[in-house]
Every structure is written in C-alpha cells, then in structure tokens.
Computed example of a mutant assay.
Amino acid sequence: MAIKKSIPAWLNVSADRVTITLSKPSEMNGVQVDALSLRSPTVRDIRAAQQGAGEDDEQRELNLFASLAEVGVKDLEGLALKDYSRLQTGYFRLVQDDDV
C-alpha cells in the first residue's frame, strides 16, 4: 500500500491545474498577485520550452512554468526563492501519476 503525501495548505490541486498561494504578493504581468496557477502541460509545451532553452535546464524550467502560468519569465525570476520552490512542488504534483 502506497503512502500518499499530504498536500500543503498553500497548494490546491485539481485534475488539470494547480494553484499555489505565494508567501508574499508578487507582480505578474503588471498586477500584484498572491497566487499563481499552472495548467497541466502538453507534450507541445515541453518541446517548446526545450527549443527556447537549448541545454540550459534552468531556462527550460523557467520557460515551461512561464508558459503554464501565462506570465513572463522575468516575472518568475522576481519571485522569492520560497515561492519558486512552491511553484516547482506544485508542478511536480500536477504531473505525477495519481497512484503515487
């Protein structure tokens, strides 16, 4: 029997989207927000993020997250590290198999 990890209070997971509550408001697309949503990625999203980053794994991840959140890469670069870590956690929850 697999043990499921509890979902943090700052993370809301649905079948095709995760919403991450930020630890502090941040500017995205010129607007102050206190949460970010990532939609579920497609193979096309992954390929586009790869093409724009070459061999740079960090840039590829930034490109992908920016696309899924519909914000600019520069906006994500302005996030507190704690909030970027939350974004990474949310993404991995979104793409993991339901049996995990």
Rank of each mutant, 00 (worst) to 15 (best):
I20W: 06
Y91N: 09
V71E: 02
N29S: 10
G90Y: 00
S85Q: 14
S23V: 07
A53P: 00
L76P: 04
D75C: 12
I7Q: 09
S67D: 15
L62T: 10
V71C: 13
E70A: 04
G52V: 03
E77G: 01
K24D: 15
R93N: 13
Q50H: 11
R39V: 15
V43F: 03
G30M: 11
S37T: 07
D83C: 13
T42A: 00
I20K: 05
S23L: 06
V33Y: 06
V18W: 07
D57W: 00
S67P: 04
E77Y: 01
L11N: 02
L64A: 10
V31D: 06
V73P: 06
D83W: 03
D75M: 13
D57L: 04
W10Y: 13
T89M: 12
L79R: 07
E61A: 08
F92N: 09
Y91W: 09
A2G: 00
T19V: 14
T21H: 07
V95C: 08
V71Y: 02
T21S: 11
A49W: 04
A9S: 07
G30E: 03
E27Y: 02
G72V: 03
M1K: 06
R17N: 08
Q51I: 04
I7K: 12
T89Q: 14
T42S: 11
K82S: 09
A66Y: 02
V95K: 03
D97G: 02
V13K: 15
A48W: 02
A35G: 06
E58L: 00
Y91R: 05
G30S: 05
E70S: 09
L79D: 10
V18F: 05
V95S: 05
K82Y: 04
D56H: 07
F92R: 01
D83R: 04
I7T: 15
A35C: 09
G72A: 11
A66T: 13
R93D: 11
G78T: 05
D99Q: 13
L81I: 08
T19H: 05
S37K: 02
L11M: 11
W10V: 07
N63T: 12
E58K: 00
A49P: 06
D34I: 01
Q51H: 00
L81D: 03
L76G: 07
A35T: 13
M1S: 10
K82C: 00
G54P: 12
S37H: 02
K74T: 15
D34T: 01
K82I: 08
G54A: 14
L87Q: 07
R60F: 05
M1A: 10
P8C: 12
A80V: 08
D16Y: 04
V95G: 07
E77K: 10
S40G: 00
L81N: 02
F65E: 01
Q50M: 12
R60N: 07
A9R: 07
D56K: 00
E70C: 03
A69N: 08
D56L: 08
V18H: 04
R44T: 13
M1F: 08
A49R: 04
W10F: 13
V100F: 09
N29T: 01
A49Q: 05
G30K: 11
G54V: 12
T89D: 09
L79A: 11
